[in-house]
């Protein structure tokens, strides 16, 4: 169960997020909103990487910002750009990193890393250098690195950004098969079509909160209205 209670973030006098509250134990959760609405910041707060100025985020009862060690076992996050999150030069080192940081022994780390590679049929990638992999392949390495840690919740921050259609389809199929709870942050309602629970963030606040079937059409209509108004003066930043 993911619980957000009155989460607010204020930086330099600006309210990036204001009073975000919702709770969910749905298997597939989506967060939609325009660019600049605060959804990426929200993703980081739910992952426990940014401490909110007010409010708490609890996952299975754990305060993710305060109890980092426990949080790392519960929640993982996939960032938008794999080049900004891959730290190691080879696939096996990158996948093993989180495991060793969780305190696994060398033997267990190696076993679990190879296990996740095998699960995706990517055992040959073991010693491959990251820089020879394509964008989509790197994104998969990032996903495997997160999955190896077996978190209960995985946050996806615009994971399809910049991927071509076939790669996006592949990644989408992979994500469908994951047992963990997924929290998918996106500006594109299409990718959330089969999701259960969706939260719509607008200008740092919860605009709507409900089942995908009712919320997404409302969101799409609203976005189209803004698009028709043809007002580039409305900077979202």
């Amino acid at each position: 169960m993911l619980c957000l209670a009155d989460v607010s973030l204020r930086i330099d006098g600006r309210d990036i997020l204001d009073g975000i509250s919702f709770q969910t134990s749905a298997r597939r959760v989506g967060v939609v909103g325009r660019n600049g609405s605060g959804k990426t910041t929200l993703a980081r707060i739910i992952a426990g990487l940014v401490v909110p100025t007010k409010g708490t985020v609890r996952l299975s009862g754990i305060d993710v910002a305060k109890d980092r060690r426990a949080a790392l076992r519960e929640v993982g996050i996939l960032f938008q750009n794999p080049d900004h999150q891959i730290i190691f030069p080879t696939v096996i080192e990158e996948v093993s990193f989180g495991l060793s940081q969780l305190g696994c022994s060398k033997a267990e780390t190696q076993m679990r890393a190879e296990e996740i590679l095998a699960r995706f049929g990517r055992s040959p990638w073991r010693d491959a250098a990251i820089h020879v992999l394509s964008q989509g392949q790197r994104q998969l390495v990032c996903l495997m690195s997160v999955l190896a840690m077996k978190p209960r919740l995985i946050i996806l921050d615009e994971p399809f950004a910049g991927l071509d259609i076939p790669t996006a389809m592949h990644l989408s199929r992979v994500l469908d098969g994951i047992e963990a709870q997924l929290l998918h942050i996106t500006h594109d309602p299409e990718v959330l079509r089969d999701y259960d629970h969706v939260i719509w963030i607008d200008a740092g606040r919860v605009a709507q909160d409900g089942p995908a079937t009712t919320l997404l059409p409302a969101y799409q209509t609203h976005m189209a209205q803004i698009g028709d108004a043809d007002d580039l003066a409305q900077l979202t930043g």
Partner: peptide, 25 residues
């Protein structure tokens, strides 16, 4: 961002390793 990516998988502060992808970028 790289420091954040480190902290997403480790409770420890980012180590020297983070500088490698930084330079590659």
């Amino acid at each position: 961002g790289l420091a954040l990516a480190w902290r997403a998988r480790s409770a420890r502060r980012p180590g020297w390793r983070v500088i490698v992808p930084f330079m590659a970028l």
